[in-house]
Design a protein around this nucleic acid. Sequence first.
RNA 1: GGGCGGUUAGCUCAGCUGGUUAGAGCGCUACGUUGACAUCGUAGAGGUCACUGGUUCGAGUCCAGUAUCGCCCACCA
Length: 960
Amino acid sequence: MTEDRHTETVQQPMAKAYEPQTTEDRVYRFWESRGYFKGSIPEPGSPAAARQPFSIIMPPPNITGELHLGHALMDAVEDILIRWHRMLGAPTLWLPGVDHAGISTQNAVERQLAKEGLSRHDLGRDEFEKRVWQWVHRFRPIISEQHRRLGASADWSNEVFTLDDKPQLAVRTTFKKMFDDNLIYRGERMINWCPRCQTALSDLEVVHEEQQGSLWYIRYPVVDGTDGAGQPRLTGEHIVVATTRPETYVGDTAVAVNPKDDRYTSCIGRTLMLPIIQRQIPVLADEAIEMEFGTGAVKVTPAHDPTDFEIGQRHGLRILNVMNKDATLNEEAGPYAGMDRYDARKAMLRDLEELGYLEKTEPHTLTVGTCDRCHTVVEPLMSWQWFVTMKPLALPAIDVVKEGKIQFVPDRFERIYLNWMENIRDWCISRQLWWGHRVPVWYCADEDGDRITVTLRDPKGPPDAAPRVATYNEFIADGVTHETIVAHGAWAPAGATPIVAIETPERSPNGGGHLLQDTDVLDTWFSSGLWPFSTLGWPLRTPEFEYWYPTSVMETGYDIIFLWVARMIMLGIYNTGEIPFSTVYLHGTVRNEHGQRMSKSLGTGVDPLEVVEKYGADALRYTLITSSGPGNDMKLSEQRVEQGRNFANKLWNATRFVIAMIGDRKVMPAVPSAAATLPLEDRWIISRLEGLSRSVDDLLGKFEMGEAARQVYEFVWNEFADWYIEIAKVRVRESEGATVSPLPVLAYVLERSLRLLHPFMPFVTEELWQALVQKIDGVDDEALIVAAYPRGESGFTDAAAERDVDVLIDVVRAIRNIRAEKKVEPGKFIEAYVVATGGDEMRALLEIGATYIEMLSRARPLHIDAAVGDAPRDQVATAVLEGVTVVVPLAGLFDTAAERARLEKQIADAEAEASRIDSKLSNEQFRAKAPAKVVATEEERMAAIRARIAGLQASLAELG
RNA sequence: GGGCGGUUAGCUCAGCUGGUUAGAGCGCUACGUUGACAUCGUAGAGGUCACUGGUUCGAGUCCAGUAUCGCCCACCA
């Protein structure tokens, strides 16, 4: 199979440092050309068919612009999971897509138009949509290219856009089904209105922001009957109301107080006057009023405040809308008509003050709702909109989570989800936008009777786009075509009967009139909520849907748990009768090094491609995945990415070295099952590797990707490179022919390490693996991306070897330490004694390790003795370890005071520890209640530390 | 007004079900161009694990409270 690998791409000789810039693109094309990313359904009867499939539907990035580091994190996490399962042999699907992102994209294109001095109304709906499609065609390839640069092994052949035919069908089918089930209704309700975007918003798209404002105290004069002239008679009394929104004063239809409020008992039922507009309103009692706030009396404006609306409903108050959709006041506002809401506020306050009705003004902190997309303060407004009844959908979606059928990682998000779901409210899904899934509803307009609102642009007329209202026949008579009316007409009075259909209906069911489609589009999140199955072809029972659904993991940011995750669960259960995924993995927010949110508009964003260009995708991925745990935010700094880059380079050079050692030969990698016969250090590294593999398997199963990556890093760098390779060098150089070659173990451990690391750092590992396996016999896999992932399945463990090598390492370190302290030239060999105070076994171990100790600590001649008395006592530096005492004669370098200090410090440290252990062991409770194993361990440690102290004190005594 | 998360070395962060002397990277100190790697090596300094109390033989880890920073939810105008 070797000829199937991409041998042509491996460059020889290998560069001195890893160069991601010349590697990544080539490796990616190799993978993609081989079809490794394709989510193929296994043939029945094939080995893969017996495996549990693993699927992730990628959260579709907005078409609004380019990817940011949050997307890079998303790609890293999902790609790790996908690559891991692919290497485990599971059939995998990672299905990518892009979201049309209605309001965001419309705004982005409108901003672009504004630079040309145009508004969307200048273009008209059709032309505008064409412009947005141009935008889509421009950004789609950029986005998919960015995923590729990050190494995402997604199935590009199945990429979906949320406005493609498949999601269109799913959206219309769902809408129809919900309408037929009475879960979707059209009604006039109080919704959040963005005066700038000119659309309704759902509650979740409103961001509450704290603002410094004022609380104005306004006097409402009491009226009692009429005077002789029939004019209202003012009693001279008044009620003072505190408000943060004086501009809605003209929309007041009552003043309310709490029925329990003694201050106002006598006022209830009386009449008040709005002086400026000379309207009379009642004083009424309502439980909703907090007595403590302000004066305890509240102005009630049912058309402009949700609470007031409810009060109004309870008391049969008139809903008096005083505002236009652009937040200017309408004709109901009398003298303020036409003014912007804030100008009107100023004007009213001025007028009230002049008339003596403004009692006082206090500074006040309030929270205002702002538009998620443009941060304009939203208006609560009565409006005809489409809604989804959520409670029936939420109930089963609560159950599946409570029953553990869907699990959140980290699990604390489960409570957050449940809390929101249990207090769910109806969802306003219609948007007055031009970009999105158009509501699949038609109305039948009577040709002569019903008046249709059509937004037209007269090419010869002024460039405004005022809507015109006329009957169908009048429009036709004016030369407006049927097509234009259909495309731009809005006709949906309160009583209209909607015709809801999946396929665009040809004609009205009752024969007469003309069908006009509802001009609204759906909330982007409506189509997003269908994503896990609309992408797979639902409502058609496609093979893809049947095989991959329910999907395995939904991986996304915790910030869209309500906007998206909750809705996918509800709509998934509703539409398919099954949960859409069994695990929700939530990642945190990537911030810049100052902790700021990455934002293009704030200029705090970091382009992931710039990082990739400079450090490589592997470095970025390693950094993103290790910089924080699941569900936690992270601050990403360039310095941090360097660590990933350095690690890739370390790996590169370790492999380069192993390949060079192998030279022109080919080696058969070691087999763990036969490891028992190998030299100590071989058993050590294989045992460590197998343990690591089991640990990584366990961690990945728990979605602890960061910890898994850190452990592999630690192993590769601090055990394999720092010690095993160094020992192997000694073995090759010093004992040519005398011992077994370390090459099979080097090859085995390195090859396995590359496998372990591949999901995290796919590019460099594939590149190195391809080079390495050319030197190896018996590895048949054609590419690392599809090689089997190690799980420590050999079970080879050699605890004794691990302990023994730790001792040898400690001895080497002790000698190096003495050398460093005494400033012995690094290259110089010095004489040293290692005394096996731990008996014959220790002595045997030291004999085995002698060559390594000698070379790695530059100790020559190296004497191995059985008793401390065998080593010199005069002018020596001593280090006492467990079972070994290291003695280094220093002759000219010796300094009695310094050595005494050294020993005294060691004794002090050892005694401190001894007393810690002693306090445990002398505690009867500890002996009685702690597990025997723990007690035994402490006793062993105590014996060892006592021996150490004795050794150290003997050495100190020698100093005199 | 509820809820959640963070607070561990100078900086950025790990530390899973409580059990050796709490770790990493960067930064810092000293030394080093020994034929994988200066994107490196060797040795080292540096922490009352925010605070208080509790549970336990034993707490960075569990519980309660406090402080502080951040986030989410919420119809006190």
